[in-house]
């Protein structure tokens, strides 16, 4: 049970009623609907931040799942384990991003390894990112890609803390699917 009342379709505020036209918009939108003027600007921003963008869906899902695992967000890890599998990440990669398996063994591409080091440093570090991590990132990514991916890390962190603090529930269908595929719902 979530910490706050998740607004259902019958009680949807006017500015965000359209979100419910195709059914349950999910717990993040249903919680944000408590503050419609925030919800109506936050959701497009979240969509632009977490969507494929110029860097592509694979790198974005690396960012989202890895960041969520490092911040131990139960809701986001479950939701994006399913998304990551749907967009083509391998089982070994998903397990590694979740810290179930060794990351280095699952990711050999130097560009992706640079990104994963960047994610860990940005999401869990304090103060400046270590020079070696920054140099590797700059060597393999353009400026606009660094901005997009770093924004994605930050927005994921926001959602991780939002979902964890409000104890948003993992959907039953997601939980059932992940359990059947051998994942823990932590």
């Amino acid at each position: 049970m979530a910490l706050v009342d998740l607004i259902d379709a019958e009680r949807a505020p006017l500015l965000v009623a359209h979100l419910y036209e195709n059914g349950d918009p999910g717990p993040i939108a249903s919680a944000l609907a408590q503050v419609p003027e925030l919800c109506e600007v936050a959701l497009p921003f979240l969509g632009a931040s977490l969507g494929p963008g110029a860097t592509g869906v694979r790198l974005k899902e690396l960012v989202i799942l890895r960041t969520s695992a490092r911040l131990e967000c139960r809701y986001c890890v479950a939701a994006h384990t399913a998304v990551a599998l749907d967009v083509g990440l391998g089982l070994d990669e998903v397990h590694a991003l979740r810290d179930d398996d060794d990351l280095d063994a699952a990711f050999a591409d130097p560009r992706e390894r640079a990104l994963l080091a960047w994610i860990d440093a940005v999401a869990t570090g304090r103060g400046p990112v270590p020079a070696g991590v920054t140099a590797a990132m700059r060597e393999r990514f353009d400026d606009h890609e660094i901005v997009e991916l770093t924004n994605c890390i930050g927005v994921t962190m926001l959602l991780n803390r939002f979902c964890t603090a409000l104890d948003l529930p993992v959907g039953a269908s997601v939980a059932e699917r992940l359990t059947s595929e051998g994942f823990d719902i932590r």
Partner: peptide
Amino acid sequence: VADTHLLITR
């Protein structure tokens, strides 16, 4: 419980 179906903004 306060109704929200005619809520515009907080």
